[in-house]
Simulated scan of single mutants.
Amino acid sequence: MSRPPAPSPALPPRPTGGRRQAVAFLLGLGLLVIGSFLSLDLQWAQFLSLEAARSMGRFVGEFFPPDLGPAFLVRVGRGAVETLAMSAFGTVLAALAGLVLATSASRLHPGDRALLRTPARWLLNLLRSIPELVWATLLLISAGLGPFAGTLALALHTTGVLGRLFAEAIENAPPEPGDALRTQGVGAGRVFFHATLPQVLPQLMSYTLYRWENNIRAATVLGVVGAGGLGQLLMFHMGLFHMGKTATVLGAMLLLVLLVDLASHAARRMLTR
């Protein structure tokens, strides 16, 4: 008996409109990346040359040995504590302000008119579109040199970032617990605190810890404009070509970032258990 002919392989489905748009977006993005590389004056030959490697080697060699004098280590320790305090306090302020703005920038349930949603999101966009360095430069005029301006700069920029993340988390929270309370006549505020917030709180804490890690790095950069902390020490000694002292400050920055990353990672693991 002859075997029946094997069924012909099914043709792949034709791309839908959404797929066509996705393919067109990826192609446009690829062309934009290629155009960006072509428009930049990337001098790879000079960067990879032997002379460039020798110059970098001489420059790195000037960092050794680092200055480990007791008096200078005390100054570096104070700068590290100041940087840590700036990042922690700025992140806490941003988390509180971001949560307040996120409740206005999100639709708490499908029937919520959310009249302030669009203006609140515009405000969040404004806050996070201005970098911390620009905020610090502006605030130095009123707050003066030192960590206060840096803390406020971190808080303002991070409020925009966390507020948008918090708003998305609140809007994507499962609506069933809140709906059950609303059918019993519970007010909007109590519904938020007893149904919505407990569901998204681990996610909000994870976002806050991650931004704290970023703010440690940002706080060191704010020393460029005199906002205190390790960054101010770094710019001062690097500007005077005190390379040994600069190496010590850089080492303190690396150690501080490592410790905060480890603490934040451990805290996030505890929250997700």
Rank of each mutant, 00 (worst) to 15 (best):
residue 129 S to N: 09
residue 113 R to E: 12
residue 93 L to G: 02
residue 136 A to T: 00
residue 139 L to I: 07
residue 110 P to W: 03
residue 83 T to D: 10
residue 123 L to D: 11
residue 88 A to D: 09
residue 162 L to R: 07
residue 97 A to K: 07
residue 170 I to D: 08
residue 142 S to V: 12
residue 111 G to N: 13
residue 127 L to M: 02
residue 164 R to Q: 07
residue 158 T to K: 01
residue 151 T to I: 10
residue 97 A to G: 09
residue 133 L to T: 10
residue 140 L to G: 03
residue 112 D to V: 10
residue 123 L to I: 14
residue 160 G to V: 13
residue 112 D to G: 03
residue 160 G to T: 13
residue 124 L to R: 00
residue 167 A to H: 13
residue 110 P to K: 03
residue 85 A to W: 15
residue 94 A to K: 01
residue 167 A to T: 12
residue 119 P to M: 01
residue 133 L to K: 07
residue 146 G to Y: 10
residue 143 A to Q: 11
residue 160 G to Y: 13
residue 82 E to V: 14
residue 89 F to D: 09
residue 125 N to S: 09
residue 100 V to G: 10
residue 108 L to C: 14
residue 119 P to K: 01
residue 162 L to K: 05
residue 130 I to L: 01
residue 97 A to C: 11
residue 82 E to S: 15
residue 87 S to H: 11
residue 98 G to L: 04
residue 165 L to H: 04
residue 146 G to P: 09
residue 130 I to P: 01
residue 161 V to Q: 04
residue 123 L to R: 10
residue 84 L to Y: 14
residue 155 A to I: 03
residue 90 G to Y: 02
residue 163 G to V: 09
residue 125 N to Q: 08
residue 101 L to Y: 12
residue 87 S to V: 08
residue 130 I to Q: 01
residue 159 T to Q: 01
residue 169 A to Y: 09
residue 119 P to C: 00
residue 102 A to S: 13
residue 143 A to F: 15
residue 138 L to R: 01
residue 88 A to W: 13
residue 139 L to N: 05
residue 107 R to Y: 15
residue 98 G to T: 06
residue 168 E to A: 11
residue 149 A to Y: 06
residue 106 S to T: 13
residue 149 A to I: 02
residue 135 W to G: 00
residue 161 V to N: 05
residue 112 D to W: 09
residue 104 S to E: 15
residue 99 L to D: 02
residue 85 A to Q: 15
residue 144 G to I: 04
residue 115 L to G: 09
residue 160 G to A: 11
residue 147 P to I: 11
residue 165 L to I: 06
residue 110 P to T: 04
residue 158 T to F: 03
residue 122 W to Y: 14
residue 168 E to W: 12
residue 141 I to F: 15
residue 144 G to Y: 06
residue 92 V to L: 06
residue 147 P to H: 07
residue 88 A to S: 13
residue 125 N to W: 07
residue 115 L to I: 13
residue 120 A to D: 02
residue 158 T to W: 03
residue 144 G to R: 07
residue 135 W to P: 02
residue 140 L to D: 00
